[in-house]
Amino acid sequence: MRKATQNLLLVMIGVALLHITVISGDYVNYVRPAFQIMLIGAAAVIVLLGVVGFWIETRDLDHDDGDRRAEQENHHGARAPRTAWLLFLPILGIFLVAPPALGSFTASRAATRTAPAAPPPPQEGYAPLPDGPPVVMSISDYVGRAYAPQIGRPATLPGHQVVLTGFVMPGPGSAWYLTRMRIACCAADAIAMQVIVRGAPMPPKDAWVQVTGMWGPPATTTTRTVFQPIMASSVRRIPKPPNTYE
């Protein structure tokens, strides 16, 4: 790959990164929102590298003749290997596929339907829930709190109304799953967090909903690989949130 193409490629990568971080906001489909500043910084460095390279090398070309150019092209480090062409793939992916966040396709691929592991509880343990209006919490938080009594920590859920947000997946019988993907760093480490919703008809698959309800004991309490249920008192359709991960 010649120098001019390398400069062009660098600018394109930087532009693609800036596009997903600043313009479209698609980057939250791929990585945690906290990465935004780092991505913008990296994009700026890459664009700068391409633009400065382009500026210096075309300035040289204006004054030099062809022989000097040939010598420069062959000088160490000028040419990149052909694998560098692969860097166009992510650019094409960002613009031509523009994939959405991971959803029910990935979540349903777990062949044996075992419940997801409870996320690690906070160091100081779960704080008691306040009385009063229903408490908004993440599905990870809910599953973690529901699981806490099994490892000898205080139960915090019974008697409290909570609000969970996620998308709909079909479950056994008339029950259905409320699901949300949880990522630690990027979508490659995504884990599906799921609760089983009882007492409410299933909305359309993949719809985003807010479920208000109370925790109920799971069907069997012997193993931790059991889905924690929520006894729904109301289910409300909501628009898809900008960041679909938790």
Binding site: I13, L17, I20, Y27, N29, Y30, V31, F35, M38, L39, G41, A42, P90, G93, I94, V97, P99, P100, A101, L102, F105, T106, C185, C186, A187, A188
Partner: peptide, 17 residues
């Protein structure tokens, strides 16, 4: 294809910085 692209872009985008 979308799921593949999401994971592929996630690895590339995250590793790039």
């Amino acid at each position: 294809l979308q799921a593949w692209s999401t994971v592929f872009l996630a690895i590339c985008v995250q590793a790039l910085p």
